[in-house]
């Protein structure tokens, strides 16, 4: 699972499946229960799917970048730098999650969506971004950087 290109392919496939699960099934049923002031649930769902798509893309790209970086021979020479790179990537993913949530909030400011619903949406976005990044790198990082992700013992 750690070897290239298997880790790349599994990550892309996993990201795509996760998008189908979150954007089609979970978001679909979630939007049905939403009470919107102006917009329609279909329009909101379409926006949410785009946001989740961007999130999934960002997560996958970051994983691919990590796998490439971790697979470089020169990375073995400076694992402290690798740890910094991994943490910065994780922070970028968190920032991306927050930014995508803010975009969705901004275009739906007048809809009167409850905070607990925004929290659920943030959870869905996070699944594709920082959590996806952590999960994929935890299980599929190249050999040299296998112990770099958080909580890997």
């Amino acid at each position: 699972m750690r070897k290239s290109p298997l880790n790349y392919l599994i990550t892309i496939a996993f990201g795509a499946i996760l998008w189908v699960v979150t954007a089609i099934f979970i978001a679909g049923s979630f939007c049905e229960s939403l009470m919107l002031a102006v917009s329609t649930p279909e329009k909101f769902l379409a926006n949410l799917r785009i946001i989740l798509g961007v999130a999934a893309f960002a997560g996958i790209i970051n994983c691919i970048q990590w796998f490439y970086y971790g697979g470089l021979t020169s990375t073995a020479g400076n694992l402290k730098k690798a740890k910094t790179v991994w943490i910065i990537s994780l922070i970028i993913q968190i920032v991306v999650s927050v930014a995508l949530l803010l975009v969705l909030i901004f275009i739906n400011l007048t809809e009167g969506i409850l905070p607990k619903d925004w929290l659920t949406i943030f959870g869905l976005i996070s699944l594709h971004t920082w959590f996806f990044y952590w999960f994929s790198t935890f299980f599929m990082s190249p050999r040299t950087v296998v112990y770099i992700p958080l909580f890997k013992k």
């Binding site: 020169s74 990375t75 020479g77």
Partner: peptide, 12 residues
């Protein structure tokens, strides 16, 4: 090959 190779193709 360099010392990083020693780590990757050697030790690892």
């Amino acid at each position: 090959l360099d010392f990083n190779n020693f780590k990757t193709i050697g030790l690892d």
